[in-house]
Design a protein around this nucleic acid. Sequence first.
RNA 1: CGGGGUGUAGCGCAGCCUGGUAGCGCAACUGCUUUGGGAGCAGUGGGUCGGGAGUUCGAAUCUCUCCACCCCGACCA
Length: 575
Amino acid sequence: MKASNFHLFTTRETPAEAEIASHQLMLRCGMIRKLTSGIYTWTPLGLRVLRKVENIVRDELNKAGYQEMLMPAVQPAELWKETERWEKFGAQLLKIQDRAGRDYCFGPTHEEVMTDFVRNEIRSYKQLPITFYQIQTKFRDEIRPRFGVMRSREFLMKDAYSFHIDHESLDETYWEMYDVYTRIFSRTGLRFRSVEADSGAIGGHKSHEFHVLADSGEDQIAFSDESDYASNVELTAIAMPEGDPAAPAQDMRLVDTPQAHTIDELVSAYDVPVEKTVKTLIVHAADEAEAKFVALLVRGDRTLNPVKAEKLEQVASPLTFASDAEIRDSIGAGPGSLGPVGLPLPVIADQEVVLMSDFTAGANSDDKHYFGINWKRDVEVPVTADLRTAVEGDDSPDGKGVLQMARGIEVGHIFQLGTAYSKAMNAVVLGEDGRSHVMHMGCYGIGVSRIVAAAIEQNNDERGICWPEPIAPFQLALLPMNAKKSHRVREAADSLYGELLEAGVEVLYDDRNLRPGVMFNDMELIGIPHRIVVGERGLDNGVLEYRYRTDSENGEIPLDGAVQAILKKLAGATG
RNA sequence: CGGGGUGUAGCGCAGCCUGGUAGCGCAACUGCUUUGGGAGCAGUGGGUCGGGAGUUCGAAUCUCUCCACCCCGACCA
């Protein structure tokens, strides 16, 4: 590709709306343009990258024997009413009407359409298992789109769905897909990790997420330093602590603590070790029969894990904290002075809390705390649960090693859906036994457009993007120095360009006749991995200059046999 | 949806407080010079000052209202 014939429009300044590196760089090098909030145009440059990612995904899925299809972006409301998601999906579902007033939505996902397709096409267990996929533009009316295509409303997603006669078959395909995903992400050249995940509102049994590792990632993932255990920290279980509480060494006493309304204040003003404090959080109860609220206890230095809390049957979903007024109303004290002693609410304690002794907590009376509290003696031992968020250094839940933390960007998610959708939509096949069986389903997503942003987030420096070779928009940049004046340079560059094209190299030939600095900066900004410079200097010595994007020094390639040498460089970096 | 903020040329911004008919840098266009890390000189084009209403002789500037966008939070692949 000649640069004179390719739409390149880079800017030196960063648009004010972009916060994170990937968004800023995508705008600066002109890969995307915003049309309106959360909706972007992909330019020729951006599209080249998007297609690279897409093709890797497609190629690996095809190799695994899954079949590509293309479903409609606009879907009738009837299908969504069958699964009750027309109401349940919430405001993220973009609803539209046609001229006759019929209801549709712009598809945020395709379980309904796919299940409808399969229930009409598949009749017999002999046709199972079967897996279809598509690469489609989806729309979710995000509350707050941000970070460019990282969290946009319209986005490109690969979604696959598998259908099975029973759970064993689903499980088999699930793990097969896990391996396919591993191959896909390996091929993109990105550093990634798969983790156990919360299956969330979609429901189902088993679920894994695939994360591109990047310090700016929104998700925190925990992994063992000795085994391959890894999970989203939302889900990371805490191993049950061993032992019994120490025998009481102190009497319980009521202390005036006007300076302490937070754990930090309690620790600093009254010289209490933070491990000897208990935090009391009041949330709405699931069933208000017993009480309107439930108290959750965690050690003072711990963080409540909202995902774990929400899964408790006693706790309302979604998790809702009681307001200050509600707390005062039901307990008679403010949120800074709460504790388990004399609390008129059901209590659930984190499992380590019941092993504490001689601890401090609020007295449910303003500006007062109890010191030296001991379970059983001073207050009934509460129900326990795993409530806190794991931190670095915790024992790995599989018993091997301790947990490390990393940040990641979720780019893939696989679920075992089971029969949730097939049952609601009556997707059945005849089994070997001659009876109808509800099909078991798996669903598997990859955020194609998000991968592009995640790749940049993981691979950039002060000069711009540093694409991993497999998803770079071009493999090689060919830069002639002052070709307008130097016929030698132009002829050498022209002929090299021809030979590289012939050899199948994706080369961007910068024939724009710009000053060298502009060319260097542009090519580095858009992140082309390999760079060849043709200049008088080099030609005098019979060489071309070569530099990899992340190198700090130039290398040389002899003019003689240059194409072969370049091909070797490209192959070398690809691995 | 709650809280905060911003809308002035393609991008980044000043002007607004104190009303007098719009400016700077970058980008773009023309010409000449220049060519190994975002060149220099000279010139040119480009603005319903987010929309509407009001106050005023006069509004980018003051008032009201609507809209869009951004940030924080709750929510989420």
